[in-house]
């Protein structure tokens, strides 16, 4: 079991919408680089970040195929962070708010991401050395 410090993050922005999402993922990576275990509670639109059926697409206007467009997918960013944590002997826990998932029909999530309730945010925050809530404006 990791003895590193643990940071909890609460995030509510959906994929493909806001610059906050990019900043959030950069912050998660910086926290892993700093040697922290990570716990994420995703709610509202953020539950779609781990949706396993996200698909990349090309850009016919610019004449680029799927590979050339290299469209970023948040499910791949999460998987990359999971891998990074594993390589560093750190933990990376991700819980989606179940009601928010049901509302949006995004039940299929990538491996390593789970389903819970706001009580999990309380548990995460209670177990963490510090917590950051990134609210949607």
């Amino acid at each position: 079991m990791s003895t590193a410090q643990t940071l909890t993050f609460a995030f509510m922005d959906p994929p493909f919408e806001s610059e906050r999402t990019t900043t959030f993922f950069r912050l998660l990576e910086a926290s892993l680089e700093a040697g922290a275990n990570i716990k994420v509670f995703a709610y509202e639109g953020a539950v779609a970040l781990a949706f396993s059926k996200q698909q990349a697409h090309g850009n016919s206007v610019h004449g680029r195929g799927v590979d050339e467009e290299a469209h970023p997918l948040s499910r791949q960013w999460i998987a990359a962070l999971q891998q990074k944590a594993k390589e560093r002997g750190l933990t990376f826990d991700w819980i989606n708010c179940g009601l928010c998932v049901d509302e949006r029909g995004v039940n299929e999530v990538i491996s390593g991401c789970g389903r819970g309730s706001p009580a999990d945010l309380w548990k995460f925050a209670s177990a963490a050395d510090n917590t950051l809530v990134i609210g949607t404006r």
């Binding site: 700093a34 510090n130 609210g135």
Partner: peptide, 18 residues
């Protein structure tokens, strides 16, 4: 600065507000 500044602040126990 880079975002490692935020990670360091969180790990140091600062009150971090977004």
């Amino acid at each position: 600065a880079d975002l490692d500044l935020v990670a360091e602040a969180l790990l140091a126990g600062d009150k971090v507000i977004w």
